[in-house]
């Protein structure tokens, strides 16, 4: 595989062609925050926390590093005043949805985000898609998916599949940055099997 040379935070980094900026940085030991990234999964570009500044032929712009592929001679800044300000805003927006997420609380401390900047709108899910992609790409069961779009978008279990597969698996539970997933699972169980059927008996 052919190599590409780029500069990340002033350091010369070598990466393979087709790699994303996020992977190249992490391999070089430079950390970029992300909530929707998982090494086994196709990138989604959902949480936008991995936003970095790249400079191509002298002009700087902001890109989402988990879906931006490396290029020869690229200059990347993973921390700059602009990047930090944008990450702070993103964390504040996500906190409005999931105020109690421990991962978000950590980012809030790091970027000085104010958890009360936006009116709380607890949907608890930040639509990172980790559960949806993990179930589809790694487990191959497609038991949970997205429904609707825009502000009404949410995750939803397919009851017929979830009832058969999920009790024995639950591989997606620890991936969820907000723990909403478990709540959605229990909710689906109690809607489909009111009074505690097979799928919710143990809880």
């Amino acid at each position: 595989m052919s190599k590409v040379r780029l500069k990340i935070d002033g350091r010369d980094v070598e990466a393979e062609k087709g790699m994303t900026v996020l992977d190249a940085a992490r391999r070089a030991g430079i950390s970029i925050p992300a909530l929707c990234h998982h090494e086994k999964l196709e990138p989604l570009g959902g949480c936008r926390l991995c936003m970095v500044e790249v400079e191509v032929r002298g002009s700087a712009r902001l890109v989402v590093s988990c879906v931006y592929t490396v290029a020869e001679g690229l200059t990347v800044r993973t921390r700059s005043e602009k990047v930090d300000r944008i990450r702070k805003g993103i964390v504040e927006l996500l906190l409005a949805h999931a105020p109690d997420s421990p991962q978000l609380a950590g980012f809030a401390r790091e970027y000085g985000a104010d958890r009360n900047r936006f009116e709380p709108e607890p949907s608890f899910c930040i639509l990172c898609g980790l559960c949806v992609r993990y179930c589809a790409e790694v487990v191959g069961k497609h038991a949970v998916g997205f429904i609707d779009r825009g502000i009404r978008k949410e995750i939803s279990f397919v009851p017929e599949i979830a009832a058969k597969e999920c009790d024995a698996c639950k591989a997606c539970f620890p991936l969820c940055p907000t723990s909403y997933l478990q709540a959605a699972f229990v909710l689906t169980g109690s809607l489909v099997f009111p009074g505690g059927g097979e799928s919710v008996r143990d809880r």
């Binding site: 949806v132 179930c135 589809a136 497609h142 038991a143 949970v144 998916g145 997205f146 429904i147 609707d148 779009r149 939803s156 397919v158 017929e160 599949i161």
Partner: peptide, 12 residues
Amino acid sequence: VPMARIQHVATF
């Protein structure tokens, strides 16, 4: 096509 995908498309 998995049901989750169809529901995604049908509600999108």
